[in-house]
Design a protein around this nucleic acid. Structure first.
Lengths: 129, 129
DNA sequence: GCGTTACGATTACATCTGTAAACTGAATTG
DNA sequence: CAATTCAGTTTACAGATGTAATCGTAACGC
């Protein structure tokens, strides 16, 4: 049998990520339905979405299920995992793998709203219990 | 006069970022000195470093100062700004622009050490006061 | 049944990135 | 002064990405 697909674990590009977000929000969807939900915002055409979907299938980040003559697409990876690995990459690259400096940076950059701060304190208290 | 340089504000790639880190740590440096500090780790050759440096100069992320027949390179942007914009990009892309969910995620993923947690609490207390 | 749709698959093509090698001109060395 | 060396500049080239157009084919309308 021919290996048609690429290896899993390849990086998901930013455009591909936009498609993933749509599928994480609701799935399964047809290509046309995905387009309905991003094409306008990103100024894409349907062919673009189809290309991105097939690349995602290649990367095994999206799975397909036949539905008559077309496919229904669903995420094949969890958003949590994606978010986790992306966050980790950033923290590793910019903050030596430590999350505290990231926070420190956000604080210094005043990138945290009061609401954020309260919520973070609450979170910490929770795990501190 | 011919515009030889590109516009500023273009994105810095990951390889370019590794060069920036070297220059943020110490500058000005010659191309060879930059290579001494990253080539082994990244398994690069000197030509690679030269290419990256000239791309960074193009992007106006690095500035040069002649020193005899060669150049001394220095960062033309602050690390804080770079870190800030990259962090913001991630937070925008993955957490709807809110920093708290990022923290929540790190907490849930148990990506925070006890030390991190203490430090974050201290930071929060500090800005809270 | 046959032309038209509606899909996915294949191909396209310009940029950006990673990674260098080749070229050029100035400086240094013998 | 000629040969070598050293630095920057130019060119290269494959793979990833953004963004489609085109092709082939199966279903559907008439």
């Amino acid at each position: 049998m021919a290996e048609q697909g690429d290896e899993p674990g390849e990086r998901i590009s930013e455009a591909e990520h936009a498609v993933m977000e749509v599928l994480w929000r609701k799935s399964p969807l047809t290509a046309a339905e995905v387009c309905e939900r991003v094409c306008e915002e990103r100024d894409w055409s349907l062919p673009t979405v189809k290309t991105l979907l097939s690349r995602l299938v290649s990367k095994q980040a999206v799975s397909t299920e036949p539905d008559g003559r077309r496919f229904l697409y669903s995420p094949a990876m969890q958003r949590t995992d994606y978010v986790g690995s992306e966050s980790r990459r950033l923290v590793d690259r910019l903050f030596g793998g430590r999350a505290a400096p990231l926070l420190a940076h956000l604080v210094e950059a005043e990138a945290l709203s009061d609401e954020d701060i309260s919520e973070i304190e609450r979170l910490l208290k929770e795990i501190r219990q």
